[in-house]
Every structure is written in structure tokens, then in C-alpha cells.
Amino acid sequence: MPLPWRLEGGSCLQYIIAFLVGGAICAVGQLIIDTTKCSNAHLLVGMVCVGAVLSGLGLYEPFQEFAGAGALVPVLGFGSSITKGMLSEIQRLGWEGLFTGAFEITGLGLAASIVFSSILALLRKPHK
């Protein structure tokens, strides 16, 4: 059953929720960077793992339903997509899905970021 604010075409409230939830996830990341000895790499990998585990436990899906892009865009969503891709490939192929599934959904994002950053690196000088 769709939640009351998930109206056809999206309502204003939906945008606000996505903004607040996405911002809250980023704020947690910033707090971890500021208050612990974690490096950016630790945080990035940690967030992906948390997303993947939550998704595996079936907890990320309802959260994503509630927050929309606010849950999908941060790197937690990337972790969740890894698990989702894996689960669907396992159903299709069996155990081989563990190996083919990780990039099933995330492959698009990975390839796009490599292609676009390569193009930009050719066109522009990096910021100092």
C-alpha cells in the first residue's frame, strides 16, 4: 500500500522528507569524520557495508520507500543496491549470483562515474 504522501508524480512533502533524510545521513557521516579517527575511506566503505547489511536484513527497503531519493542517493543506497543485485542474481543463477550480482545494479553508477570523471579530467584542471 502506498504511503499517503507518495502521491502520483510526487508531492512537496516527499521532496522535503528526501532532503531531510539524505541530509541526516550525510550529517552522521560528517560527525564521524569530525569526532573519530576514521578516514574518508573508512567511512565510505563502512557506509556501503551498513547499507548492504541493512538491505540483506530487509530493513533498507521500507526505509527507501519512506525516504525515496534521500535513502537512495547517499552511499548507503549503493550498499543496498549491491545486496539487491546479488539476491536477484542468486535467484536467477544460484550461487554464481554471489559473484555476478554485486555490480548488477551498481554497474550503471560505477561506469557512469568513471566515464564522466574521465571526460571532466580531460576537459578541466582539478581544483587545488
Binding site: D34, N40, H127
Partner: peptide
């Protein structure tokens, strides 16, 4: 600044926040 930053810390391009 830039040579030390990339040898000892992170590449400038990564734009890592400083504490």
C-alpha cells in the same frame, strides 16, 4: 602545499576536509 599534501596526505583532487 600541494606537493606535501599529495605525498603525505591525500591528492588535492580528492578535496579531503582538513581537521
Amino acid at each position: 602545499y600541494q606537493t606535501a599534501e599529495r605525498q603525505y596526505r591525500y591528492p588535492i583532487e580528492l578535496n579531503v576536509q582538513h581537521i
